[in-house]
């Protein structure tokens, strides 16, 4: 849904993370939610109430729409977590810990 602008980080190195099981490069210092918006397709979670598809909304820590699974840990606020080399980022489906 989002793309790097040209000359985006010519001087800053990229970090490799694993989004939905696929290794991808993202700019250093970006959030896990931003990595999802670049490489994760549409939705990043389904709601525990009705199973609706959702995606990050505010990108500043308010709405909790970016709850995702990071390095196996559910319920992480993806827009506030900065990527690290090798980080595994996955959507969160339904209630955390309950696999549909």
């Amino acid at each position: 849904m989002f793309k790097l602008l040209p000359e985006s980080n010519p001087l800053a190195p990229a970090v490799t993370v694993v989004v939905n099981g696929r290794s991808v490069a993202v700019p250093q210092g970006c959030s896990a939610a931003a990595a999802m918006l670049m490489h994760g397709g549409g939705s990043t979670r389904t709601t525990p109430v009705s199973g609706e598809a959702r995606a990050p909304y505010c990108m500043m820590g308010l709405c909790y729409e970016c709850l995702m699974e990071i390095d196996g840990e559910p319920n992480q606020q993806g827009c506030l977590v900065i990527v690290r080399e090798g980080m595994h980022i996955n959507p969160q489906l339904g209630k955390p810990g309950v696999k549909p």
């Binding site: 989002f2 793309k3 790097l4 602008l5 985006s8 980080n9 993202v26 700019p27 210092g29 970006c30 959030s31 931003a34 918006l37 670049m38 995606a55 990050p56 909304y57 505010c58 990108m59 500043m60």
Partner: peptide
Amino acid sequence: MSCGAAQTLLKASGLA
């Protein structure tokens, strides 16, 4: 998304 989110992605990561 919110406009603020788009602006945040622009500033924080150079994403449009």
